[in-house]
Simulated scan of single mutants.
Amino acid sequence: MRIDYDGRRFQALHGGDGTCAEYRQRGDLVWAVFEGGHVRRGTITGTCDDEGVLRLAYTMVLHTGEVIAGHSTNTPQRLGGRLVLREVWQRYGEHAATGVSYLEEIPAPEPAGAPR
Rank of each mutant, 00 (worst) to 15 (best):
M1N: 15
M1G: 14
R2I: 12
I3F: 03
Y5R: 05
D6A: 12
D6P: 10
D6W: 13
R8V: 04
R8F: 06
R8Y: 05
R8G: 03
R9P: 09
F10D: 02
F10T: 03
Q11E: 12
L13D: 12
G15C: 11
G15V: 07
G16R: 02
D17I: 08
C20E: 12
C20A: 14
A21E: 06
A21H: 04
E22K: 11
E22Y: 13
R24T: 05
Q25N: 06
R26Q: 04
R26D: 08
G27L: 04
G27H: 03
L29I: 07
V30A: 03
A32Y: 00
A32T: 02
V33T: 10
F34V: 00
F34E: 00
G36M: 09
G36E: 05
G36H: 04
G37V: 03
G37Q: 03
H38G: 14
V39H: 02
V39A: 02
R40D: 10
R41T: 08
R41K: 13
G42E: 01
T43C: 07
I44V: 14
I44S: 05
G46Y: 00
G46V: 01
G46I: 00
T47N: 07
T47S: 11
D49Y: 02
D50Q: 07
L54S: 01
L54F: 01
L56Y: 00
Y58T: 00
Y58Q: 00
Y58S: 00
T59L: 09
T59F: 09
V61D: 06
L62D: 04
L62Y: 06
L62Q: 03
H63C: 14
H63F: 13
T64C: 07
G65R: 07
V67I: 13
V67R: 09
I68D: 01
A69M: 07
G70H: 00
G70T: 02
H71M: 04
H71F: 06
T75G: 06
L79G: 13
L79T: 15
G80Y: 05
G81V: 04
G81D: 02
R82N: 15
R82L: 14
L83C: 09
L83M: 13
V84G: 03
R86F: 09
R86P: 01
V88W: 11
V88E: 14
W89N: 00
W89P: 02
W89G: 04
Q90C: 07
R91T: 01
Y92N: 06
Y92A: 08
Y92W: 11
G93S: 15
G93K: 11
E94L: 15
E94H: 13
H95F: 10
H95A: 11
A96S: 12
A96C: 07
V100T: 12
V100P: 08
S101K: 14
S101M: 13
Y102R: 13
L103G: 04
L103K: 01
L103M: 08
L103R: 01
E104R: 07
E104A: 14
I106D: 09
P107Q: 08
A108I: 13
A108R: 14
P109F: 11
E110T: 15
P111C: 12
P111F: 09
A112M: 13
A112V: 15
A112T: 15
A112Q: 14
G113N: 05
G113L: 06
A114G: 06
A114N: 08
R116Y: 10
